[in-house]
Amino acid sequence: MITFGKTIRLFLPDGTTNGLTTAELSNWTGIGIKVPRIKIRDYNARTEFQKPGVYILFGKDGNNEDAAYIGEAEVVAERLAQHIVNKDFWNEAVFFVSKDKYLNKASVKYLESRLYEIAVSAGRFAISQNTPARPELSEAEQAELEEFLSNVRILTASLGYKIFELLIETVEQGTTRQQLFYCKNGAGASSIGSPSTEGFIVYKDSLLLIAAQQSLSESIRLERQKMLSEGILVVEGAFYKLTKDYIFTSSSRAAAATLSRSSSGPIEWKTADGIQLKSFES
């Protein structure tokens, strides 16, 4: 599929990053707004706040993990005011409306449902809410909203939140799930992964050796324990098994977590033909 470059315009009305930010794409009728919770009352008279739209609340849950709530509103300002009163976890909101009258109640409910679906699939944020109902729309209406949705995803990431970005979408250009790298040892550890724009993805069902050698760093020991407590790893005999794709910050960290020892990722990760990862990085 052919992709095209995008021109994104960010505007800070107050000239500071601590206030409201608007985000627009060229030749698009939508607009994104990022606003801190404590500043919402300062801006809610703006035109964008008085329109129907879809919004995301961002903050931390009780375990200090990234959390979000996705919703829709016929008047965004009114709904955000309600959430200031009844939801305590969030500290920033991002919402999207149309600069014309394109969005209505049915369309924002469709966007809410689809954004919830994508966010849950991406698994980057804790999403604790009921599954939104999706309205019945014509095929043409859905196609138009899917285009709007794609721009919402781009701008949300540009505003600092990759809640809608699937891990597989971060795989390095030119690397696909068919061009995989393997990390194994004689004890049976066996991981499959790919370089990512955020580090190194290790794919679901990979097996990480539990028994740790002395050279394994304390930070990786702690990361594996955290993954275990969150259900990202489960015990399977002498191994931890990944229950979902997971991004490590580097190939070396991914190799060390797999082999339970200090490791050099560019050397340990190899293609099925035995070519080391370092050959692709040089």
Rank of each mutant, 00 (worst) to 15 (best):
L10G: 03
Q178C: 04
A272F: 04
T175Q: 07
T17F: 13
R177C: 10
N64H: 14
Q173M: 04
N18T: 15
I168N: 13
S219P: 03
A256E: 13
L80C: 02
V234T: 03
Q276T: 12
V76Y: 01
L208W: 00
I2Q: 00
D14G: 07
S263Y: 05
P13I: 15
S229Y: 02
Q179T: 02
A140S: 05
K226G: 07
I168W: 10
L207E: 03
G237C: 07
S229T: 09
V152S: 04
D14P: 02
K6D: 09
I267Q: 07
D42S: 11
E24V: 11
T249N: 13
I163C: 06
I2E: 02
N27L: 15
R9D: 14
N18Y: 14
L155D: 03
C183R: 01
S121I: 08
I8L: 11
K87M: 11
G188R: 00
G59Q: 08
G265H: 09
Y182R: 00
T249H: 14
V202E: 01
K162A: 13
V76T: 06
T175W: 04
I232A: 14
S194I: 11
T197Q: 05
G15S: 10
S251T: 06
A133F: 05
P132I: 12
S252E: 08
Y203P: 02
G274I: 08
L80E: 01
F89K: 01
A211M: 15
S190V: 00
T3S: 12
S215Q: 06
Y161Q: 01
V75Y: 02
F164T: 08
F11E: 14
I275S: 00
K60H: 11
K204R: 02
T22M: 13
T21D: 09
A256C: 11
E230I: 08
A67N: 10
K241G: 01
I40L: 03
F11M: 09
A143S: 14
D66T: 14
N18A: 14
T21Y: 02
R46Q: 15
N64E: 15
A45R: 10
Y116Q: 09
L25G: 09
F125D: 13
F11L: 15
V35R: 01
E268P: 04
L233H: 00
D61F: 05
S229K: 12
A254W: 06
L159C: 01
R261I: 06
A254D: 07
A256L: 15
S260R: 03
P13Y: 12
I163A: 04
L111Y: 09
V85M: 01
L207R: 03
S282C: 04
Y69G: 10
A122R: 04
K184F: 10
F280I: 04
S262T: 12
T243Y: 00
V94Y: 01
E268N: 10
I56H: 08
T29R: 14
A122W: 11
R153W: 09
L149Q: 06
D14C: 11
K34W: 03
A257N: 03
D245Y: 08
A77N: 06
T3E: 12
S191N: 05
V152Q: 03
Q214L: 13
K51L: 14
S158F: 08
R124W: 02
G199E: 05
P135S: 07
P13E: 15
S252T: 03
G71V: 02
A140L: 07
A255H: 08
I192V: 05
A133G: 09
F96E: 00
N44M: 12
K270Q: 12
G53E: 04
T156W: 01
N130S: 08
N63I: 05
S121A: 15
T29F: 13
